[in-house]
Amino acid sequence: MFSSCFPELSMAQPALSTEIEFALPPVVHNEQGQVRTVGIEIEFVGPSAERTVQALQEALGGRLVEEDPHAFALKESAIGDLTVELDSRILHPGKQAGTQRGVLPKIAALFGFAARYLVPCELVTAPIPVDRLQELNRILTILRGAGAKGTQDAPFYAFGLHFNPEIPRQDAATITAFMKSFALLNPWLRREASPDATRNLLGFADPFPAEYVRRIADPDYWPDIPSFTDDYLAFNATRNRDLDLLPLLHHFDAQRVRAILPNEKINGRPTFHYRLPDARVSDPGWSIAPDWNRWVCVERLANDRERLDAVGSAYLSFEGEDKSWANVVEQIVRS
């Protein structure tokens, strides 16, 4: 049954959101019988990448590795491997294929020391088992202690929070079900992730085109992977989507994706890439749990074929605006 995703929550996130538990998805194990994993990305400003990773090492242990002056890895910490770096490709030329040591890396390093006041840092975790997500609150506490700042400290900038959950089954039906569920719930997801309308244009990726949503919402739409990929690329040949499927589709059929996007930075992997525009890192009451739990709502609807088809049919017959559909969806996920 599709039960309420988090009945304990009101519309507003409570003051002490770190007490909220992380919900488990309906499918906890992958096809190999292992607990599914999810990687997390958090953007912030304030301390340098080096100072941040040092603070993490002090609290979590592990081995610190400098990849360049603005990119560091923490290996074998208490919660796994982490990386922290300035979030700009041009500041890390050594990571780009064919780059030679010499003048260019030195220029990038110097530029990075100036850019760190304008370019956010990004903390990226290695894949974490979905039943251990509560441990991530330790990271937020460490970041706040190091002086990290987030969205609420920058009125004209939105710092991102990204989830990279492992796909539970690597088949066409699973990909299609997740895409249907996300597209149908997205007006509600976007409203809940950033209820302040004045911020909506700052950090959100573009929503999926209405024509594409109507196409995939059809209860009869259950294509094979090549057909799904062709349809997705026809409407979404961009990384600028809330749910970016390009890494997943590249994992299944790199040649098909590269034929349309030959130069785009895409690393194929069997995960979804869910982008959120709000990381309130310096807020002691902020947790990633509510955002994760809303993602679990997507998984629960995707895992309920009968209900998913019913919601798709309802969407196709709905004549209101997105904000009105968000109200309909809210009742669905809370029922």
Rank of each mutant, 00 (worst) to 15 (best):
T52P: 00
S48N: 10
L60E: 00
V45Y: 02
D81E: 00
K75Q: 10
P105M: 07
V103W: 15
G61M: 09
E85M: 07
E43L: 01
F44W: 12
T52W: 04
G80K: 07
Q57N: 08
Q54A: 09
A49N: 00
E43K: 02
E43G: 02
P47E: 03
S88I: 05
G94C: 06
H92C: 06
E66R: 15
T83L: 03
E76S: 10
V84K: 01
E67Y: 03
A78T: 12
I90V: 13
P105S: 12
Q96A: 05
D68M: 05
E50A: 14
E43F: 01
G46Y: 03
Q57R: 15
Q54S: 09
S77P: 04
G94R: 06
I79G: 06
S88N: 13
V53N: 01
L64I: 09
R89M: 08
R63K: 13
F72D: 00
A97F: 15
G46E: 00
G102R: 09
K75H: 08
T83N: 03
G102N: 08
E41G: 02
G98L: 11
T52Y: 06
E66V: 11
V65S: 11
L60W: 12
E76T: 12
G62C: 06
V103Q: 00
A97E: 04
E50L: 14
S77R: 06
L74M: 07
S48C: 12
E66Q: 15
E43H: 08
E67Q: 14
A59S: 11
G102T: 14
P47F: 08
R101N: 13
K75F: 15
Q54G: 01
A59I: 06
G46Q: 04
V53T: 14
A49Q: 01
F72P: 02
R51E: 10
F44K: 00
S77L: 04
L91H: 00
Q57M: 07
G98S: 10
K95H: 12
D81C: 02
V103E: 03
T83P: 02
L86W: 00
P69R: 04
V65E: 13
F72E: 01
A59R: 13
Q96R: 12
G102V: 12
H92E: 04
P93S: 08
D81L: 03
E85K: 11
R63A: 11
D81T: 08
A59N: 09
E76A: 11
E85Q: 09
G102L: 11
L104I: 13
E76C: 07
A71C: 14
G61L: 08
E67D: 13
I90Q: 04
G94T: 13
V65M: 12
D87G: 01
A71T: 01
H70L: 14
S88P: 02
R51T: 09
Q96V: 15
G80M: 02
R63Y: 15
D81P: 03
T52A: 07
A97D: 04
R89Y: 08
A55G: 03
